[in-house]
Design a protein around this nucleic acid. Structure first.
Length: 748
DNA sequence: GGGGGCTATGGGGGG
DNA sequence: CATAGCCCCC
């Protein structure tokens, strides 16, 4: 157990205290993953059978990293540990037990698109106004209901919810929820929330003693990112290890300051409840940050103190003073991108950074475009995470829909997607007839098209379609999924359809289909993918589950030499030597939706905290005064979060920008669109000699090293906080406010 | 039934 | 700006 020596005292206690409940409050960079992995290794070394260990994470990436690190210590027994995301672990359990709650074991997992498409169909059927009942809103509300363990029936009986819906003009929501659930069931489909919701129902209803089975199966539980669990997830955890006679061997690891998923139902209350629910809980606080330099740690600390509600802790580091934080103030979003990329070049040269040590983090995925453009121009290799993943591309989803239908014929969403792709003369009118028939009889679309009903002039085409799929199902038995997929792609004439399109995009769609087939082959042949806890075999069902639950974040190529571009959300848990957090403007970061409420801003602040604590050595923050959004130029002030960082933590050249960012709002002089900015090279005047602060008075003509000549309009504040308002001759701004304590000004 | 072009509308983060 | 939904014409 050599590894115990690699831990500090608190970490070691958290690792070796394996009996009873414990909570590890882990600040950023405090060795959280190390504690989790060594704790599992320690459990195994303590003769706990690995298959009795359940470790739940939020991302596949976290699970994968954990497993890799455990295997270095304990070898192949790691494959027997049940380590994975909440969703994948529960999907696995549901595959075993689905029949006990009325689902087929080959159930489909509906992704967001499937869910929204089904919701739209239901709204249409009910004759409701699709504008008032937007699929996105419906989805969020249904998701939130499930996350709070509210079934459709409970929803309909909840006067408060009904009243709220009525007030918002969505009074029919409870009916939609009910219908949606029925339709999912009829289709043998679960959405992402169902993977949790149905697991809870399974354990709660406890058919054939499944509850006892899993309680005794998992003797030791670990939960990563506990601050991001929602009520439903915590309820499942409690089902598994909070009961009479339970040893309560649970270890929750998290950081309330990094809770950034309240929008999908995560609640900090879980941490507070955890202390109440599990008596004798031991709390370990990991407060030493091994990741970042003091400026970064201190800046993060000063930001997060603006949130009232938090577990008391003091994050500190023993690292040496490093570089101060840099702030880039750009006139436009394009200028921001250009200057950030310039700085990346500069940092690469000066500090010999490799691409993989650099990340650009933004609030919204839409911001990636400009950075992408400038990085490409500069010949810097980059990789964008998030956004449209491979598996969300139309042509890929089309093929997967065929495979889904082969796996589960009641999968209505899959059927709807391909019944007329490629074109086979089955239009909306016919499909509506099929749907109406299916609904009237409470059967799936597949069952409907199998009946002897007349669906108008498309009836023949519909029968032919069904015959074709039946042929595929026949083919499935006895042949591998790669062969099956290849057969389907050809026989369905998808490939012919794609070949018809000679355009550039058509070509790339064809390539994507080929890439999908390659990926399927890889899945089939690659032994590493076998994982007892999540993917037991190489079946079609197993493959479909896998791709439904991975994101492209999880498919990182090893050792790729690229600059990382991603949203702050996806950056959680990662670290980079140099981090650029961009787009720090009001209405963007914090987002316009969040600033309406205190809780909203607090969550954005935690998100900002997550962003800056990703940096090990160099942190650059940037904002733009104007930015293209939704086709229009918008103008916003610097983010309030910038003001929450002590100005001392910024480097000299950034301080005036920092100050200005906290200055008063300028009255609405609208910037001309896409105004070209000519940047003057900074000439260093050899005769420059800074004057003393007392000489800088109202009316004085002064020279600034960087901004050039200007006139002092006024001076306010006293002593160290004296600020001069100066009009510089060659500035785009009317005035700048400069803190005299730091300014280098010479009176003429 | 299919396709092209127009208009209105939304606008976030992810498994 | 992107995209969904609509209308109109073939």
């Amino acid at each position: 157990m050599q590894y115990l020596n690699e831990l500090n005292d608190i970490q070691r206690q958290a690792v070796t205290d394996i009996n009873g409940p414990s909570l590890v409050v882990a600040g950023p960079g405090s060795g959280k993953t190390r504690v989790l992995t060594y704790r599992i290794a320690y459990l195994i070394d303590s003769k706990i059978p690995p298959y009795q260990i359940l470790a739940l994470t939020f991302t596949n990436k976290a699970a994968k990293e954990m497993k890799e690190r455990i295997s270095k210590v304990v070898g192949s027994s790691v494959n027997k540990v049940w380590a994975g995301t909440f969703h994948s672990i529960f999907a696995r359990i549901l595959r075993f037990e689905a029949d006990k709650i009325g689902y087929p074991s080959s159930f489909t997992i509906y992704d967001t698109d499937d869910t929204k498409s089904l919701l739209n169909a239901i709204v249409k059927e009910m004759g409701l106004d699709p504008k008032a009942y937007g699929a996105g809103t419906l989805y969020n509300r249904i998701s939130s209901a499930k996350s709070n363990l509210i079934s459709p029936t409970a929803y309909s009986n909840n006067a408060e919810l009904l009243e709220k819906d009525r007030a918002k003009g969505v009074g029919q929501l409870h009916h939609i929820y009910k219908k949606y659930s029925e339709r999912c069931r009829r289709s043998g489909a679960m959405d992402f929330d169902d993977l949790l919701f149905q697991t809870y129902r399974l354990l709660h209803q406890n058919p054939d003693g499944v509850l006892e089975k899993y309680r005794s199966k998992f003797s030791h539980l670990l939960v990563d990112e506990f601050q991001d669990t929602n009520y439903l997830q915590y309820s499942i955890i409690k089902k598994l290890c909070l009961y009479d006679g339970s040893p309560q061997n649970i270890c929750a690891v998290g950081d309330d300051a990094q809770s950034i998923y309240a929008f999908r139902g995560a609640t900090i209350d879980n941490i507070l409840d955890f202390e109440k629910d599990f008596k004798g809980l031991k709390t370990y606080k990991l407060e030493q940050n091994y990741r970042s330099t003091p400026y970064i740690v201190n800046a993060a600390n000063s930001v997060i103190t603006h949130n009232k509600k938090q577990i008391k802790k003091v994050i500190w580091t023993s690292h040496e003073q490093g570089e101060k934080i840099r702030l880039v103030k750009a006139i436009s979003d394009t200028e921001e991108a250009r200057r950030v990329v310039d700085l990346i070049q500069e940092q690469k040269n000066r500090y010999h950074l490799s691409n993989s040590e650099i990340a650009i983090l933004y609030r919204t995925n839409a911001q990636s475009r400009l950075f992408e453009e400038y990085l490409r121009r500069s010949n810097l290799a980059y990789r964008i995470y998030g956004g449209l993943s491979f598996y969300q591309r139309k042509e890929v989803k089309d093929i997967l829909a065929y495979l889904r239908l082969i796996n589960n014929q009641n999968d209505d969403e899959a059927l709807k997607r391909i019944i007329n792709y490629p074109r086979r003369g089955i239009g909306n009118t016919s499909l509506d007839k099929v749907s109406a028939f299916a609904n009237a009889n409470g059967i799936s679309l597949w069952e409907a098209i199998g009946s002897d009903t007349d669906f108008g002039r498309s009836t023949n085409s519909i029968k032919k379609f069904r015959k074709m799929i039946e042929g595929f199902i026949q083919k499935e038995t006895g042949v591998g999924i790669y062969d099956l997929a290849t057969y389907v792609v050809n026989k369905s004439e998808v490939i012919d359809d794609l070949k018809k399109d000679g355009s550039h995009e058509g070509q790339s769609r064809l390539e994507n289909v080929q890439a999908l087939l390659d990926a399927i082959k890889d899945f089939e042949e690659n032994d590493e993918i076998i994982d007892e806890a999540t993917l037991p075999d190489k079946s079609l069902e197993s493959y479909l589950q896998n791709i439904a639950l991975v994101s492209d974040l999880d498919n990182e190529e090893e050792g790729s030499e690229t600059i990382t571009l991603m949203s702050v959300h996806s950056a959680k848990g990662l670290e980079f030597k140099s981090v650029f957090v961009v787009g720090l403007e009001e209405n963007l970061f914090p987002s316009a939706m969040a600033i309406k409420s205190r809780e909203g801003v607090d969550e954005e602040r935690r998100l900002f905290y997550v962003a800056i604590t990703r940096a090990e050595q160099y942190l650059t923050l940037s904002f733009a005064k104007t930015r293209y959004r939704y086709g229009k130029i918008s103008e916003d002030t610097a983010s309030r979060f910038l003001k929450e960082i002590d100005i001392e933590y910024f480097d000299d050249s950034s301080q005036s920008a920092a100050l200005e960012s906290s200055g008063v709002q300028r009255s609405g002089v609208r910037m001309a669109p896409m105004r070209k900015v000519l940047r003057k090279p900074i000439k260093v005047n050899p005769n420059f000699k800074a004057s003393s602060i007392s000489d800088i008075i109202e009316g004085a003509e002064v020279v600034h090293q960087r901004f050039g000549k200007g006139k002092v309009l006024k001076v306010d504040g006293d002593n160290d906080s004296r600020v001069a308002t100066i009009a510089f001759d060659n500035s785009f701004d009317e005035t700048k406010r400069i803190l005299l304590k730091y300014a280098k000004l010479q009176v003429l």
